[in-house]
Amino acid sequence: MSEAFHRSATIDASRIHIEMIGNRIILKGQVRSLAEKADATKAVSAAPGITCVDNRLEVANAVSLAY
């Protein structure tokens, strides 16, 4: 699944953890922007057999501004 991130120039895969439960993907970690978060969902949902993507990624700037 992480291969999908490596093919995308807009996604920093080093900060994303992927958990697969059956046909469901859970994304956790931090991304740099809302666009990167959306791109991550799009990249994994395109994989064969995936029926659900639970995107729990946090946008780094939003996390730092909250504190």
Score class of each variant (00 low, 15 high):
M1Y: 11
M1C: 08
S2P: 10
S2M: 14
S2K: 15
S2N: 15
E3L: 12
A4W: 04
F5C: 06
H6A: 13
H6I: 12
H6E: 13
R7M: 06
R7V: 07
R7Y: 03
S8C: 05
S8F: 07
S8D: 14
A9N: 12
T10F: 14
T10D: 13
I11A: 03
I11C: 05
D12V: 02
D12L: 07
D12R: 09
A13S: 06
A13R: 01
S14E: 08
S14G: 11
S14W: 03
R15W: 07
R15I: 03
R15G: 05
R15L: 07
I16V: 06
I16N: 03
I16C: 01
H17M: 09
H17Q: 14
I18S: 00
M20C: 12
M20G: 05
I21C: 11
G22T: 05
N23I: 02
I25H: 00
I25R: 08
L27T: 04
L27C: 04
L27F: 07
K28S: 10
K28Y: 04
G29H: 07
Q30C: 11
Q30H: 13
V31M: 04
V31P: 02
V31G: 10
V31A: 04
R32E: 15
R32P: 04
R32W: 11
R32L: 11
R32V: 01
R32F: 09
S33R: 01
S33V: 07
S33K: 03
L34N: 15
L34Y: 12
L34Q: 15
L34H: 15
A35L: 10
A35D: 14
A35C: 07
E36Y: 01
K37I: 03
K37H: 03
K37C: 03
A38Y: 03
A38I: 09
D39C: 06
D39N: 07
A40L: 09
A40K: 00
T41V: 00
A43N: 09
A43G: 00
A43R: 06
V44I: 04
S45D: 09
S45R: 15
S45H: 13
S45P: 06
A47K: 10
A47C: 13
A47H: 07
A47N: 09
A47E: 10
A47Q: 06
A47S: 06
P48Q: 13
G49V: 10
I50H: 08
I50E: 00
I50N: 04
T51N: 09
T51G: 09
C52Y: 14
C52A: 14
C52Q: 15
C52I: 12
C52M: 15
V53S: 00
V53P: 05
D54G: 08
D54R: 06
D54T: 01
D54Q: 08
D54V: 10
D54A: 08
N55E: 07
N55K: 00
N55L: 00
N55Q: 04
R56W: 03
R56L: 09
L57Q: 00
L57T: 05
E58F: 01
E58S: 13
V59D: 03
V59L: 02
A60I: 05
A60R: 09
A60S: 10
N61K: 13
N61P: 10
N61C: 04
A62T: 14
A62F: 09
A62M: 11
V63R: 01
V63A: 10
V63M: 08
S64P: 05
S64G: 11
L65H: 13
A66N: 11
